[in-house]
Design a protein around this nucleic acid. Sequence first.
RNA 1: GCGGCCGUGGCGAAGCUGGUUAACGCACCGGAUUGUGGCUCCGGCACGCAUGGGUUCGAAUCCCAUCGGUCGCCCCA
Length: 424
Amino acid sequence: MKYKIPRGTQDILPATSPLWRIVEEKAHDLCRRYNYKEIRTPMFEQTELFARGVGDTTDIVQKEMYTFEDRGGRSLTLRPEGTASVARSYAENKMHGWADQPVKLYYIGPMFRYERPQSGRMRQFVQFGVEAMGSDDPAIDAEVIALAMNFYQELGLKGLKLVINSLGDKESRNAHRSALVNHFEPRISEFCGDCQQRLETNPLRILDCKKDRDHELMATAPSILDYLSDESSAYFKNVQRYLESMNIPYTVDSGLVRGLDYYNSTAFEIMLEGDGFGAITTLMGGGRYNGLVEDLGGPETPGIGFALSLERLLMALETQGIELPVEEGIDAYLVTMGDNAKQHAPALLHRLRAAGIAAEADYMNKKMKGQFKAADRQKAAFTLVIGDDELENGTVVLKNTETGEQENIPEEKAIEKIKEERGA
RNA sequence: GCGGCCGUGGCGAAGCUGGUUAACGCACCGGAUUGUGGCUCCGGCACGCAUGGGUUCGAAUCCCAUCGGUCGCCCCA
């Protein structure tokens, strides 16, 4: 084989593309009910947007971006996530001036990260994301979380676990960071190499290290929640109160950290209980990003959103054996016998299709037996048979593929009958 | 960037302590059955075992390299 698909990408073939449509339609429908409007931003942006927005020190920016130079010498990057683009668009299109606030947007589209692929992690993957911008009402936090939970629940997923935390404002975060360093530094040599690294880069990450989970310093480590300002603390309490009022169960985990620089205040994740699938348990991540729009040159704007991967969703559905209602099978397969009938086929097919009937015929010069097999394989509800006799009479043999009953009737009658049966 | 496992027909999969013709199953095509499928029977379907070197009288089977897949680490959706 000369050409191969690029690493970390996939062809979504007809066997699975219907699942994607179902899931995407669910997202569209849910957003309609929650009154979020679709936004479509470019799949690439100025590299600087992500460096600024996502954060220079993040793994995404440091080693995962698909960056290239265009013919004009501009540095562009395939988007690794959606929030930076939406924030850019918010500022650029002066959405702060729109009559209806907050501006509630959603998107579905491919994202790109240069990583070693593994189960649930691709170089091109599809995210469904939601952003609510312009409001710092804790009720909108709860709404965004509720939307995500409903999305999974309405698709039938079980064992969902919502985890929330508050990262506080910048001051709270810095104070907490110092406290963590002070806590671990004296005995950091007792920790794994990764953790020793984390002490420098992101001390918060030490808290969810799998290797050092049982170290005694873990239990006594300072919690971000103890460093929240009164305001941040009250805000977080309100988010929780709203979740409770909607009967959405959650767990507060002070170790929940989000990886991107723009997050602050409310942070949340939806995970799969137990082992999940492969090494992946996180289905969705999100949080508040007050200040992002401002960082990108717009007005001071609070914002909150989430992003989830449709690949991971489909994997989760599959591991739980959840079957989505895929419509399959065509309405009619036209079997022809002899040259005259074959020549008449296109015209009859044309008429069937114009009448709203999903119809197919043979283009491989198959014998009758082969045509019937094809009709079975394609799950045709009806088989139409025409030969010299039928052509002469302007009739067609209409056969119900399942029951095997058949009758010789005029073409128009057959079309009517199929329409009636199939609701076309 | 690092590590484990793997790479044989459209798919699944034997063969892998080296030795004429590369099992078998599924799918597909044809015939038995020249106007009717799903069952049965018969037949067909890999100038070739990821690619390139090497060892050998001889390699799908051993060695090396490269590429690819997969799973995991890091991190994340």
